[in-house]
């Protein structure tokens, strides 16, 4: 039953499951930091499927792409956390519902 290698569809299912968990986190949590972590889950989920296709087709470009995703994630996290600190300095809360200054 457990013979052979892992089929592509299993990796894609894992990727889709993690992506959906990330979406759920972004939609139902209101803590800024946890929403941010859910976005990281989504980025990671995409990396799994990129590398799975790479492995399936014997390419290297997917791995380069996931490397770039990691670069962008690092940049995003540093700027995003700086924004969170700046926001927290103006208004001492992390609840996203309280930040509605730009809402009309």
């Amino acid at each position: 039953m457990f013979e052979g290698t892992v089929p592509l569809s299993h990796y894609l299912m894992l990727s889709a499951t993690l992506f959906v968990i990330g979406i759920v986190g972004v939609l139902i949590r209101r803590n800024v930091i946890v929403v941010f972590m859910s976005i990281e889950i989504m980025l990671n989920a995409v990396n799994i499927s990129l590398i799975a296709f790479d492995n399936y087709m014997n390419l290297s470009s997917g791995q380069i792409f996931s490397f770039m995703v990691m670069c962008v994630a690092a940049a995003e996290v540093s700027v995003g956390l700086a924004i969170i600190i700046a926001l927290h300095r103006n208004k001492p809360t992390v609840n996203l519902d309280e930040f509605n200054l730009l809402k009309w």
Partner: peptide
């Protein structure tokens, strides 16, 4: 990507 990371570094310092 290296320019992006540099910009992010400067941006994080300025924002925080």
């Amino acid at each position: 990507a290296s320019i992006l990371l540099l910009a992010a570094m400067v941006g994080a310092v300025v924002l925080a």
